[in-house]
């Protein structure tokens, strides 16, 4: 005959088994703790945003026009570049503006060497410990008398922007 006198003991056994499994799982899984900062999700979003902003700045108004980015680099207009870049990437659809900061460096070829110069220096929020990301954009400069460090020949330079959130 089947009776149910042992039911509670069975339940107890199952519960004890689950608790032991749970303990073992927690012990093993807590050897690594992931925080959102470790997972590069914000880095990915920031890098995408930076690339998009540079792409916007590199898009001329008209088909034959010259893009803002090319004018800023060609005429060494660092303040204009910084203002436009921060304006685009701090824009939000509502509420307070975002608090992104940037610095920019331009890489160019001189002889057989790749040289760089600081285009936009970092502002006071830079401590060196920010989780900054890098976005880059090629700029094609026409032949023109523009003085050092970029001499007169037509050249391709790489604009590198570091972006970080305060």
């Amino acid at each position: 005959m089947v009776n149910d006198t042992g039911q509670l003991y069975t339940m107890e056994g199952v519960a004890a088994g689950l608790i032991m499994l749970l303990t073992a799982y927690i012990v093993i899984s807590t050897t690594s703790v992931y925080t959102p900062g470790d997972t590069h999700i914000t880095d990915m979003q920031l890098e995408q945003l930076g690339s998009d902003v540079l792409a916007m700045m590199d898009t001329p108004d008209t088909e034959t026009g010259v893009s803002d980015l090319e004018v800023f680099v060609d005429h060494n207009n660092a303040t204009g570049f910084e203002a436009t870049f921060l304006d685009y990437c701090n824009a939000t659809t509502g509420g307070a503006v975002d608090s992104l900061h940037m610095s920019a460096t331009i890489y160019y070829q001189d002889g057989d060497e790749v040289k760089e110069y600081l285009f936009v220096p970092a502002d006071d929020s830079w401590t060196g410990r920010e989780s900054a990301v890098r976005a880059t954009r090629w700029v094609q400069l026409d032949e023109r008398s523009r003085g050092p460090p970029l001499d007169d020949r037509a050249r391709a330079v790489l604009v590198e922007v570091l972006i970080w959130r305060d």
Binding site: P36, H40, I41, A55, A135
Partner: peptide
């Protein structure tokens, strides 16, 4: 973990580099 693998996949793939 899912977010991490996704984000690393996006960061590693040079979509913007190739477009640029």
């Amino acid at each position: 973990l899912v977010g991490q693998t996704t984000a690393e996949g996006v960061l590693e793939f040079p979509k913007n580099d190739i477009r640029d």
